[in-house]
Computed example of a mutant assay.
Amino acid sequence: MSELIRFENVTKSYENGKTILNNINFTINSGEFITLIGKSGCGKTTLLKLVNRLIKPDSGNIFIEGKEIKNWDIIKLRRSIGYVVQQVGLFSHMTVEENIVYILDLKKNNLLEKKKKANELINLVGLDESYLIKYPRELSGGQKQRVGVARALAGNPEIILMDEPFGAVDDITRRGLQDELLKLHKELGKTIIFVTHDIEEAFKMGDRTVLMNDGNIIQSGTLEQLLFNPKSKFVETFFGIKDFIAYLSLTTVKEVMKPLNNIDKISPRLLKVNSNIKLIQAIKIILESNSENLLVMDSSEKEIGIFSLSNISYNK
């Protein structure tokens, strides 16, 4: 993957002099799904806002596609970056279709292009065309978030910024939205920077998770790197690693897998595992084989489920 975004010695302070980002050096590659996690006030959202110049750094440089961010035309930059926030921010006086194609209005796309894009995107986020004539007040929280994602995709951006986008919906809706976003990422290959305070969400969503504290990046890495090779006591404590490893060591794949139903199509290439193996063993198989899913078999060799890292659910 090629480098898309680079932070070099980036520092940002509040007006009261408190440092919110402290000499950040960090690179994001094209097509990566990055999750930013940490306690409130650690700098996650500030880092996100620097990417589309909603705020400017006090010092240091930010490069996008090799070009220093201050040398970008700010309007062109923002129109090329999708942005999704927790409260969505849909225009209440506009229909869903009008909300989705708003960025295309700014780009002076014609009516036929806008209609085609609206239909394409509403289906892409798991809703049908009947929603296009509705107004935001007629939608549930989860439906509004889907429309927000569709709107962020309308300009075909390379980068999508997401600031705790699913934090205001119930757990069941949230899991559905997470799965939909992962599917979209796989299909479209966009670069996503996703702020969350939820450990499970961070590990489920990110190719790489970045742990921040007091304006510093403490450690960046995969699930395996952060859990099994923590670089400091802070990392170990934050993720509750000892308890989590105990959970992985005691819980079987059968307990968390997605059960098969009659309409599931099973790829013959899927690796097979016994339903009674522990999660820690299944994770190792996935990481070593570079697989996304495992086919779970019962003691009689019957296919009973699919296991992936996204099935892991742990609350400290």
Rank of each mutant, 00 (worst) to 15 (best):
residue 178 Q to H: 09
residue 178 Q to W: 07
residue 178 Q to T: 06
residue 179 D to I: 12
residue 179 D to T: 11
residue 179 D to F: 09
residue 181 L to G: 02
residue 181 L to Q: 02
residue 182 L to V: 05
residue 182 L to N: 06
residue 183 K to Y: 10
residue 184 L to I: 14
residue 184 L to E: 04
residue 184 L to T: 08
residue 185 H to S: 09
residue 185 H to Y: 07
residue 186 K to R: 11
residue 187 E to H: 01
residue 187 E to Y: 03
residue 188 L to T: 00
residue 189 G to D: 08
residue 189 G to H: 02
residue 190 K to L: 10
residue 190 K to H: 11
residue 191 T to M: 11
residue 194 F to A: 02
residue 194 F to W: 05
residue 195 V to L: 15
residue 195 V to D: 14
residue 196 T to I: 06
residue 196 T to C: 07
residue 197 H to E: 09
residue 197 H to K: 04
residue 197 H to L: 06
residue 197 H to R: 05
residue 197 H to Q: 12
residue 198 D to P: 10
residue 198 D to M: 09
residue 198 D to V: 12
residue 199 I to Y: 04
residue 199 I to E: 02
residue 201 E to A: 03
residue 202 A to K: 08
residue 203 F to H: 05
residue 203 F to D: 04
residue 204 K to Y: 01
residue 205 M to N: 06
residue 206 G to I: 04
residue 207 D to S: 09
residue 207 D to G: 10
residue 207 D to V: 07
residue 207 D to R: 09
residue 207 D to T: 09
residue 208 R to W: 10
residue 210 V to H: 00
residue 211 L to C: 06
residue 211 L to W: 06
residue 211 L to H: 00
residue 211 L to Y: 02
residue 211 L to A: 08
residue 212 M to T: 13
residue 212 M to G: 13
residue 213 N to A: 03
residue 214 D to T: 03
residue 214 D to I: 00
residue 214 D to Q: 08
residue 215 G to S: 07
residue 216 N to R: 15
residue 216 N to W: 09
residue 217 I to P: 06
residue 218 I to W: 15
residue 218 I to S: 14
residue 218 I to F: 15
residue 219 Q to D: 13
residue 220 S to T: 08
residue 221 G to A: 00
residue 223 L to K: 00
residue 223 L to V: 02
residue 223 L to M: 03
residue 223 L to S: 01
residue 224 E to W: 11
residue 224 E to P: 01
residue 224 E to A: 13
residue 224 E to V: 10
residue 225 Q to P: 10
residue 226 L to Q: 08
residue 228 F to G: 05
residue 228 F to K: 05
residue 229 N to E: 14
residue 231 K to A: 04
residue 231 K to P: 00
residue 231 K to Y: 03
residue 232 S to T: 10
residue 234 F to Q: 13
residue 235 V to C: 00
residue 236 E to S: 15
residue 237 T to R: 13
residue 237 T to P: 08
residue 237 T to K: 14
residue 239 F to L: 12
residue 239 F to Q: 09
residue 240 G to D: 12
residue 241 I to G: 08
residue 241 I to N: 05
residue 241 I to W: 02
residue 241 I to H: 05
residue 241 I to D: 04
residue 242 K to L: 15
residue 243 D to H: 14
residue 243 D to F: 12
residue 244 F to T: 14
residue 245 I to S: 05
residue 246 A to S: 15
residue 246 A to V: 13
residue 246 A to F: 13
residue 246 A to C: 15
residue 247 Y to H: 11
residue 247 Y to K: 00
residue 248 L to S: 09
residue 248 L to G: 08
residue 248 L to K: 03
residue 249 S to L: 08
residue 249 S to C: 10
residue 250 L to Q: 07
residue 250 L to N: 07
residue 250 L to W: 01
residue 251 T to K: 01
residue 251 T to H: 01
residue 252 T to A: 04
residue 252 T to L: 01
residue 253 V to R: 11
residue 253 V to Q: 11
residue 253 V to G: 11
residue 253 V to T: 12
residue 253 V to C: 11
residue 254 K to F: 12
residue 256 V to K: 02
residue 256 V to L: 00
residue 256 V to E: 00
residue 256 V to D: 00
residue 257 M to D: 00
residue 257 M to L: 09
residue 258 K to C: 01
residue 258 K to S: 11
residue 258 K to P: 01
residue 259 P to G: 03
residue 259 P to M: 05
residue 259 P to Q: 03
